[in-house]
């Protein structure tokens, strides 16, 4: 291959990489899982000045949680018999059945999420000292 062809190919590859990088940053750079859920699902209720929000979807819970996790990869997840819990840097996303084939989707910031879902994530995503059985989560024994 001639020198000129190699230079052109190298610059072309760099150009493709730069364009891909620009598209990636332009389409995803400012997003978050909270925005994604807000854009995609119907807002039902807001609490604590927007720190906690509840959304609704006609799609079944497994489809909703799959879709959210595919768009924004969670750092951790807990499945429970009552719903699915996804953990992100600043938010908790919880998806459960609405009893009619659709889903309820809760988005809480970390602090509110830990309080609201203490019975499910306590001991797994933070400290857990409650002696109350009503607040029983998986507890510190979960996992190795």
């Amino acid at each position: 291959m001639s020198t000129r062809a190699q230079v052109v190919l190298g610059l072309a590859l760099a150009g493709i990489g730069a364009v891909a990088l620009a598209i990636l940053l332009a389409t995803t750079g400012n997003g978050s899982v909270r925005e994604h859920v807000g854009d995609r699902y119907r807002l039902v209720a807001t609490q604590d000045g927007g720190r906690s929000r509840e959304y609704a979807s006609a799609e079944p819970p497994s489809q909703v949680v799959d879709s959210i996790a595919a768009r924004w990869k969670p750092a951790d997840r807990i499945n429970d018999s009552a719903g699915y819990f996804l953990r992100y840097r600043d938010d908790y996303v919880v998806v459960s059945s609405d009893g009619a084939g659709g889903s309820r989707i809760f988005v809480d910031d970390e602090e509110e999420g830990y309080r609201h879902w203490y019975g499910f994530v306590g001991g797994s995503w933070g400290t857990f000292s409650s002696p109350s059985e009503a607040n029983r989560g998986r507890g510190p024994g979960a996992g190795k």
């Binding site: 190699q6 190298g10 590859l13 760099a14 493709i16 990489g17 730069a18 891909a20």
Partner: peptide, 12 residues
């Protein structure tokens, strides 16, 4: 993307 940019520039 970074590998493409850096690799392409290094090659060129």
């Amino acid at each position: 993307s970074g590998v493409l940019v850096v690799g392409g520039l290094v090659w060129a």
